[in-house]
């Protein structure tokens, strides 16, 4: 099988394959980390760098990152760009439509803290004011490589998840931040 699991132990060879043992956590986390499906959802400038990451040179798909046009099929939301106050409610709505476990990468300065629009009357100063964020990615805009690094960081986080923790949420997530909305 070409699966590499951290704590997989092969116990017996059988014709046509073998019998292996693994914990359900590592199996589920392996599946989860290698198919991080983001939502095709761009807000502003960073969305263009996100598109570049999907395109020829960077080829995000080799990391299992394959854009889905609907929130119902997406695992992770890249908040790529400035969150305006008018857009805040749709973002919350889209976030609620995503199935658990769901993750958010705040891409770029605007999604982190407002960026160059920190003193604007129409901008939400950071998407973490409306939805919980898993990975903050600085830059204005971050390069596609940086987005890849953010996904790698997210995968690291995913590997630490356990089945016991509710719907796969980390203890911190299960405890609180999701109730904010």
């Amino acid at each position: 099988m070409g699966i590499v699991l951290d704590n997989l132990s092969k116990i017996e060879s059988l014709p046509g394959g073998g019998l292996a043992l693994a914990t359900s956590d590592s199996l589920i986390n392996w599946a989860r980390t290698s198919s991080v499906w983001p939502l095709t959802f761009g807000l502003a400038c960073c969305a263009i760098e996100m598109m570049a990451a999907y395109a020829s040179r960077f080829d995000f798909e080799r990391m299992g990152v394959f854009p889905r046009p609907t929130p119902r099929q997406a695992d992770v939301m890249f908040v790529a760009g400035t969150v305006s106050k008018k857009m805040a409610d749709p973002i919350i709505r889209i976030y609620k439509q995503m199935p658990e476990p769901k993750f958010v990468i705040a891409m770029g300065g605007c999604a982190n803290c407002g960026g160059p629009f920190y003193d604007s009357y129409a901008v939400v100063k950071g998407v973490d004011r409306i939805i919980p964020v898993d990975v903050y990615l600085p830059g204005c805009p971050p390069r596609p490589e940086a987005l890849m690094y953010a996904v790698i960081k997210l995968q690291e986080k995913m590997r630490k998840m356990t089945v016991k923790g509710g719907l796969g949420a980390t203890p911190l997530q299960a405890a609180g931040s999701r109730k904010l909305i």
Partner: peptide
């Protein structure tokens, strides 16, 4: 207006 950032004010 979903990306209105108030640039002219800024």
């Amino acid at each position: 207006g979903f990306l209105h950032r108030g640039m002219e004010k800024l």
